[in-house]
Amino acid sequence: MQLQKQASRLDKLMASRLWKSIFRSGRGASTLHRSMAIQQNVFLHILPTKVRRRMLNFDATWYLGTLTLGTFLLLVITGILLMFYYHPSVPQAYADMKDLRYVVSSGLFLRNLHRWSAHAMVLLAFAHMFRVFYRGAYRPPREFNWVVGVILLLVTLLLSYTGYLLPWDQLAFWAITVGSNISSAVPVVGHKIHFLLLGGNLVNANALLRFYVLHTVILPLAAVLFIAVHFWRIRKDGGLYVQQSEPARETAEEARADENTQQVVVKQ
């Protein structure tokens, strides 16, 4: 009885003028409405309205890309929350770590979640790359999306690496000292890169601030941008890769030629 009443209230809300003005697709369970739910939504319209059923099987993708995106969203949320209690300065940054641990409500939990999600994201991004390779999904016409994926892997590693300095503990300081010294091994411009990266000759307050800006603004923006391209290209390149149902293409030229010829489609 109660449930029915609630359901009808929801129906009423979804039929209202306000709801319709926000969600252009309107309500309904028809194929048209469900297509519109994707197509008429600014965030979802980079996805195709339809997918092959076989791609939803767990063993087709192991959902590794979806999971990587999931960790990224989790990191954005926990990261923004952590920013409310973090000062990127020496030695306040370390004191904030102690505060998060012992003083801030749920601070310890949020920091843990951010840290472990970051590790999970690196692991999942690598797993996703190897999975895509072993399924052969990098082949034309999807070659550029593979490149976008490599860029995203690098952004992930850089995000994780810049975040590593922020606690300003011994682990952070020496990992970044060693890592940034690698950049000075670059021939000719190495010391300049090192100086620019740290904003000085030593891992110091300047370096902490630079890494903070990279970690919280520049790299996440780059990640969001490339993730959008990555998803959009899945749709444009013909959906997720399905073995067997796609013609075996051995060269890029073949894939391009296929797109230009009329295909005879046989229903199974």
């Binding site: 195709p48 339809k50 939803l56 959902y63 979806t66 149902s245 199974q268």
Partner: peptide
């Protein structure tokens, strides 16, 4: 035959619900 048509399903709700479910399990 260059390609074989496959059964397709709507992204909403079939794919998005599965994605939400797997992300929830991850969380």
């Amino acid at each position: 035959v260059r390609s074989v048509d496959e059964e397709q399903v709507q992204t909403w709700p079939e794919a998005l619900f599965r994605a939400a479910l797997i992300v929830e399990m991850l969380v």
